[in-house]
């Protein structure tokens, strides 16, 4: 009984660590959204940072759940968000290009 519990603890704590690793990505995504100079660079910030952050949170929660059903559902949610946000990112960038919004340059 005791080794099993110890094993669970290790899984749980590494899950916590993964979630903690994910939080800074969300925060820097928002900082980028505020700080970056134009629509294109802001899209970069949100799409990349937030998806990596969500990946960490999802894998952390999956380790902590200890259930295959929940893990599959979490991965499905992450995959959906990945597809959705990369598609929206492309759509927004394309529309901005078609509206002749010039990218900010140095």
């Amino acid at each position: 009984m005791v080794p099993v519990k110890k094993n669970m603890d290790i899984l749980y704590h590494s899950g916590t660590l993964l979630i903690l690793l994910g939080l800074p990505f969300f925060l820097s995504g928002t900082v980028g959204l505020i700080r970056f100079p134009d629509i294109y660079t802001r899209l970069h910030a949100l799409t990349k940072a937030d998806n990596v952050g969500l990946g960490f949170v999802v894998s952390g929660l999956a380790l902590q759940s200890g259930s295959w059903a929940v893990t599959a559902k979490l991965l499905l949610i992450w995959l959906l968000v990945l597809i959705a946000s990369s598609a929206s990112c492309h759509l927004i960038a394309r529309s901005a290009m078609q509206k002749n919004i010039q990218p900010w340059t140095r």
Partner: peptide, 19 residues
């Protein structure tokens, strides 16, 4: 479009909060 990008923030960040 800049305003709309925030909808994407709601999408990913909101999902993370809900999870």
């Amino acid at each position: 479009a800049d305003r709309m990008v925030t909808a994407q923030l709601f999408g990913t960040c909101g999902v993370a909060i809900l999870l």
